[in-house]
């Protein structure tokens, strides 16, 4: 009797798993199919599932509606933020992992606290300051503000990574007379590459996804893709196909990166509470 019960429960389990997958993936399916519909097809009621696909929406948003430009802005901002966060964050992570100093706990606490601060708290003061400094509507303003979340992520994940590198390597190098900086650059940093890669991907994803700072600080020239997508919603005749084409273009790079770092995404979102 045991075997049939088990196979039946396995079938049930498989069905449940398929349902979970469908639940997660269906909105993406709908997004992509809607992006391939003309406005006329998109406004069929009830919605149609089979139709002749067209790439017209992509063509229009990329070349007529400046979504192409906003995607380039997004890439510039996300890549520069990530590079800057890695440059500033890895030495700090190394210090937290290896050195002994007073106030370490407080410093740690402060880094982690940034995970909880809502961007809306910082957005308006930064808006005023950036106007004074002539930084309004520049990539630099966004890159700097995105450090508030990318730098703590890099520091958290890389500290963990540096701790896992055996100290015997440092000690051997120290006996050879290498400086701390030399040990960091030539021995530990190369060994910490997996952590650097994971935190780069996470920093890229979070910068790419950000809306509030972008919406308030970069209304025109440095406008990023998510902020661009929002402007489509203004007005009466909502262009569904174009909105979904823009959404697809925004989401695809993020999903690729998320799948690449799928094991670490939760770690990044919890700042390491969950391994």
């Amino acid at each position: 009797m045991a075997a049939p019960i088990q196979s039946r429960s396995l079938v049930g389990e498989a069905i449940l798993l398929v349902l979970i997958c469908a639940f997660c993936v269906f909105p993406f399916y709908w997004m992509v199919t809607t992006s391939l519909k003309t406005q006329v097809v998109a406004l069929e009621s009830p919605p149609v599932w089979w139709f002749t696909p067209t790439l017209a929406n992509y063509w229009e948003v990329l070349f007529e509606d400046k979504v192409g430009v906003s995607l380039i802005n997004s890439i510039i901002v996300a890549v520069c933020t990530t590079a800057l966060a890695i440059t500033l964050g890895t030495p700090a992570a190394y210090a937290l992992a290896r050195f002994e100093f007073r106030g370490k706990t407080d410093l740690w606490f402060w880094f982690i606290t940034n995970r909880f601060v809502s961007p809306v708290v910082l957005a308006f003061p930064v808006f005023l300051i950036s106007r004074e400094l002539g930084l309004r509507d520049t990539h630099l303003a966004l890159i700097l503000m995105y450090l508030t979340f990318s730098l703590p992520i890099v520091i958290w994940i890389c500290t963990d990574q540096f701790r896992s590198i055996p100290r015997e390597l440092d000690e051997a190098a120290m006996l050879e007379g290498a400086s701390q900086w030399r040990i960091f650059r030539s021995i530990c940093l190369p060994l910490a590459m997996p952590g650097v890669a994971v935190s780069s991907i996470l920093s890229f994803i979070f910068s790419w996804n950000e809306l509030l700072f972008a919406y308030i600080l970069a209304p025109k020239n440095a406008k990023t893709a998510p902020a661009m997508a929002v402007t489509f919603m203004e007005g009466y005749d909502v262009p569904y196909g174009k909105i979904m084409a823009t959404s697809t273009l925004i989401v695809i790079p993020v999903l690729i990166f998320a799948l690449l770092a799928s094991k670490h995404l939760v770690r990044g979102l919890t700042m390491g509470a969950v391994k």
Partner: peptide, 9 residues
Amino acid sequence: LPMATTYAV
């Protein structure tokens, strides 16, 4: 996928 998706999207 859902948690990585751009919140605006």
